[in-house]
Structure formats: structure tokens, C-alpha cells
Amino acid sequence: MSAILKISDLRVAVDGKPILKGVNLEIRQGEIHALMGPNGCGKSTLAYVVAGHPKYEITGGTIELDGINVLELDPCQRARLGLFLAFQYPVTIPGVKVSDFLRHAVSNVRNPERKEGEGLIPMKDFRKELKDRMSEIDIDSEFARRYLNDGFSGGEKKRMEILQLSLLRPRFAILDETDSGLDSDAVRAVSEGINKLHGPHMGVLIITHHERLLEFNKPSFTHVMLAGKIVETGDASLAHDLHANGYAAVRERHPAEAAEEQAVTVKA
């Protein structure tokens, strides 16, 4: 039976300011969902909250993975449960080699009971796997020795996120604008990467403004977020329509949320 990531009436605030105002979303393993919406509507916030960023205050609602209350877990436990976020802005960790970082990550996620200092996955197997995955998404194997995201270009950072996705094989992955700021070759590489990874065991939520990523990875559901709420859900054609025509029609259909959205931007 496939697992479900279930977000119900999720309400989130930052510094006392409400950002998410009752988000409902259900993703099954194997499904691809697209999440679209104008800048500032709360897409990244949703992604961070699912991953467990400590800065966000949960003021209501639940997130469950197969009935497990995700909100009680710290980010590390969530990762080990099979959640993954490809960051919109991956951070740099100076002095930490990509290969060392990945080996720790893989060891932890594949052996969720692992404690600090306990054995890592065998070097030989890991090396081979790393090399294979790197060549699949067209990353030079020299990157394994570099420091994590240190001096990487935007495209290299995003590829590094996809590499992690491919090694960690989560049950649910959220890709936060993994295609932004990339040239078309890089977008293709990333899209193909996701396409290869996606299968019956991974549910994906793709946050994007563009269509390219969705061309390769056709969503079964497209959600539109406005002012911290999912206001519409449709199929792949909705994504196409939003891309072609923008959000004006959505705002017209949801005047209450559109008004809140303006209130937010005026205040900001």
C-alpha cells in the first residue's frame, strides 16, 4: 500500500505574522503534484514547515506521514522518516567535503536508528553508488572532493540537491524552485534527473514558476496557492494555463484571498 503525506488545515506564522492560513494537501507515493502561486504566497514556507525549519510557528493543523505526526519530529527524524526538501537556496558548508556529507546523510537515512559515531555505510559500496549517481545527473566526479556548495554556481547547487535526492530516495520529496535561475541545459538536466528518480515509491511536490520542469514530469495535480491558502486544484492543464495567462484569472475567481494578498504586500 502506498504511503500518504497528509497536510490538514495547516496554519503557520513567522514572528507572529500568519503566513499559511489553512493549507490542505494530500500526496500519495508515486504521484507528482505541482504547486504554483505568485511570489510571497507561502510556497517555500510550506516546504520548510514540512521539513521542520525551527523558525516557523505552527498555529494550527497537522502534517501526517502514514498516520505519524510529523510535527512532533525534528528535521533529522523527518529526513529519516523519508521526507526530503530540495532547497530553493542551498547553504554552503565550508570545509565539509561533499562525499563525507553524503556518506553521513545516506547512512542516517538508510539506517534511521543510527546514532552519532556509529558505523557508516561501507566506503566501497558508497563510492561506487556515488560515482554512478553523479554520472547519471552529469556532475563531474571531482565534485565529491569539493566542499559542500562552496563556490558552486547556481546550477551546480541545484544539481547537488538532485544528487542528494537520488541518493536518499525519500518517500516524499518537495522541490522548491529547483528550476529557477538555471539556463535551459541545466533545467533539462534537472528535469531528466527527477524523471529518472520518480517512480511508484516517491511522491513529489514540485514548486515552480516554469513549465519546463513539468514537461518532463507531468503532474497529476496542480495546486494554486494564494495568500497562504490552496485556492484551486486541477490537472496538468491548469499549470499550463497559469503559465500562459498568469494569476489574474485566479485572483478574480478568489477575491477574498486576493484582497488578503494585497493587504500583505501593502504591509510589507
Binding site: 525551527p54 525534528d74 528535521p75 533529522c76 529526513a79 565550508p94 553521513h104 537515512v109 552519532e116
Partner: peptide, 24 residues
């Protein structure tokens, strides 16, 4: 947060950042 979201415990993540700091 980044390291923890990849399955590191908080202690492991801090240790990793510190080891990286002295790596040079």
C-alpha cells in the same frame, strides 16, 4: 537546519560544521 534535513542529528550537524571550520 540544512544538515539536519539530511538526516544528521543536531550534535552530528554541529560537529560537521566545526570539523569543516578547522578543515583548512
Amino acid at each position: 537546519f540544512y544538515l539536519m534535513s539530511r538526516g544528521m542529528t543536531e550534535a552530528e550537524a554541529s560537529a560537521m560544521i566545526v570539523t569543516g571550520f578547522i578543515e583548512p
